[in-house]
Nucleic acid binder design. Structure first.
Lengths: 206, 206, 206, 206
DNA sequence: AATGAATGAGCCTTCATTCAT
DNA sequence: CATGAATGAAGGCTCATTCAT
């Protein structure tokens, strides 16, 4: 009996994942506006009605999508850098990891901002919001740890990490919207410069 | 005769402005997705058809809204700083001006990024896009001039200015989406720190 | 007093003619579906409201347009052929006149059929319909007279004339809708053949 | 399984046919201009949205309607005449078949001409247009064959067939618009006369 | 007589969602 | 669990017509 229930649950989860995958694919192909439930269901090999067996409504899937996006982000950050590196190298590696992730997957960035801005009525409960925040913070924590290893105290490290994140996000947004071309600049290069200047400043300060 | 035409023109302009105001208000209240023409017209005290006497289509009003927003931005930047200030003070004053403008009017930031991303079919013609880009650039140019006055050559100034803009935009976005509270930080303070560090770095470099 | 009234009347008529001309021009340019009152008024140098000083509603102008079209048709037929021609030559000349008129002005053909088919509620009163019918008949009467001059009695002439008209109208319709290309044929040539065969038949019969 | 799919398909087809019928009925009642999707859907007992499960857009249903009309036309022509008849009798039978079909169903004639004139945006793709043209041609081909059997070569037969079609179409149009009453004539009788005269001419020529 | 702003009803179309099967 | 037909509300937009000026 229990075994059967477990099998059922596993099946259910995998089918839910199937739809989630389809949603990501559609979302990537057509953007957040073009992603209709019809299209998502079709991509998953289902009919529209089936969608509602796995997600309560359309907005719900964006929450799930963002959660999954944050897992991939964390995986990318975790994989970066090596244990034997200096704190400065580690900072660079970890920061480049999250920046590179969003540079390569701009839709994942959209997702995060869309959810907070465009979606309030349902879909993003306060609790889910907290969870998502925590996972984002997790992805940024390695940078914060490296900053502390470089001599900053907790408060300073948090502040620098926030600035670092904001800087990257700003560059990514300018890049994603094409505004950076207006300046004839390259987002990745500017980000790298920022990290280098930051390391220098800290080393001089230390 | 001429007086009558002028009166007519003035009336017409003021009604157009009325609708523009309504659009801004609806946009603020319901976001860019909820801002339908029906809703904008209703807010302005009109029926939907009347809208089209003043704007060619839906996208057109966002173009007008952004154009007007950029004028207000430029006005804010122009008003900031004094002629006798040092270049460093001027940089701070001008940067704080555009940052403060967007901090106080977050929807104006949305507008700029929406128009670049979500608007293609009509309304944002290539020419209009150039004009809008130019006006944004105008608002940022005083910072660039100050950077040059502090000893940077044209290329360096452009790069630093781009970084400065990206940093501000990133902070504004984090603030606008509430993410910055997650870090227990304040966007304005962090921006000010960035400017101070920048000035320091330049003065040491000079 | 009376003189003044006459002047007024003349003015009025000429302005009505102005709008009628504009309507014909718009109708020619944009077809019957694309001809809006806005467009007609604009073409005439008026604003939409002025239209209603001269025509009761949109459909009314089509009646007037058709009436005027039939006057031009009659003028074209009257101008054709010469007094000294044989009846056979006259038949050919008069028939070619009305056929040529519609071949050169296909919109005038549309008008006639649109008014009868698509327009009933208002605009085409029974009385107006009679008047228009009479004027069309006037344009075809010279052919009927020629047929009688060739020896047919009144009844026979009417029948042959009806057939002749139907034949021409059929060819014009096929030409106007492009269907005649499907047969690789030319409408004018086929019409001419019909007339020749008709003359031959009558002459043999006589 | 297969049986179920077949049943589904049959159901689907019958519902599509239901809407097609509704469209034909509305079209007959209100003309081509009054036939809105709202009205068609209502007549079929549906809400407007349902329409789009069966037809891609408004023009598509007219394409389908015409296609189906041409099938009925062909069926009528195919059923006419007998194998043992003389070529002249066959010509008469086949010509009377298509003429009779359109005399009994004048809206089918409208449809054919509307689709060629009023339908451009989508719906009448070049390919569909060819197919429809071919089916119309199919319906007229038996007459052409009979003309050849009576001694005409291919080119002559095509020309006579075109004239025959034009004559019939002209008469049908005059009848449909009531203009023929103006001449106190009957379309069917005049068509029959045309065919008889044609046969006579050919036999004398042979 | 003419203006032209405004209406109101209508158009085609899309889509999240429901529900009987 | 899945279907998929159907709904209903909304979207952007057009246009003949009215009416205060």
């Amino acid at each position: 009996m229990e075994a059967k229930q477990q099998r059922q649950q596993a099946l259910n989860d995998s089918r839910r994942a199937l739809i989630l995958d389809a949603a990501r694919s559609v979302f990537e192909r057509l953007g957040i506006e073009g992603a209709s439930i019809r299209e998502i269901a079709k991509q998953a090999g289902y009919t529209p009605g089936a969608f509602y067996s796995y997600f309560e409504n359309k907005e719900a899937i964006y929450g799930a999508l963002l959660a999954e996006s944050l897992e991939r982000l964390n995986a990318a950050v975790d994989a970066a850098g090596s244990a034997t590196a200096t704190p400065a190298d580690l900072l660079d590696a970890k920061a480049s990891a999250w920046f590179g992730f969003y540079a390569a997957n701009p839709r994942d960035l959209d997702l995060g901002f869309y959810l907070v801005q465009g979606m309030q009525p349902r879909g993003l409960t306060a609790e889910l919001n907290y969870q998502l925040n925590d996972r984002l913070h997790d992805a940024l924590r390695p940078c914060e740890a490296a900053l502390q290893a470089m001599g900053l105290n907790a408060e300073e490290a948090l502040r620098e990490n926030t600035s670092l994140f904001a800087h990257g996000v700003g560059l990514l947004l300018l890049q994603h919207t094409g505004r950076i071309r207006m300046f004839g600049q390259d987002a990745s290069m500017l980000f790298e410069s920022y990290v280098i200047a930051l390391v220098e400043r800290l080393q001089r300060g230390a």
